[in-house]
């Protein structure tokens, strides 16, 4: 299994956190907030379509609303294999950070 990229990791965590509200607009806003800078739709969907292709996320269609000019939303949820990948990423992170205390940065 290939390691997740940082963006993929962030996106999957965002989807996981947003739960039932995980669709384009919300994910983008959330990630922008985390990153502290504007995260573009280009980068968002480029990564999302990769995740979808790897089956780390599942897609489901939402209802069209007037302010979307009739276009449906796609809601994302993290799949089981996605969860495994996240877990692996967390384990790896933890291993990497294990012996490094906060003082190291002072």
């Amino acid at each position: 299994m290939k390691e997740l990229t940082k963006i993929e990791e962030i996106l999957m965590l965002a989807i996981w956190r947003l739960q039932d509200d995980a669709y384009g607009v919300k994910i983008r806003q959330y990630v922008s907030q985390i990153l502290g800078k504007e995260f573009t739709y280009g980068n968002l969907y480029s990564a999302l379509s990769q995740l979808a292709k790897k089956k780390y996320v599942n897609k489901s269609l939402g209802d069209p609303t007037p302010d979307r000019r009739g276009r449906r939303k796609i809601y994302y949820t993290v799949s089981t294999s996605g969860l495994n990948a996240l877990k692996a990423a967390r384990d790896m992170n933890q291993k990497m950070w294990e012996d490094i205390t906060d003082y190291a940065f002072d």
Binding site: Y23, G24, V25, R28, Q29, Y41, Y45, L48, S49, A52, K59, P64, T65, D67, R68, R69, R71, R72, K73, I74
Partner: peptide, 12 residues
């Protein structure tokens, strides 16, 4: 996801 992207843009 083309349609959804367009939708997202509009919503926001």
């Amino acid at each position: 996801e083309n349609f959804a992207i367009h939708g997202d843009f509009n919503e926001e």
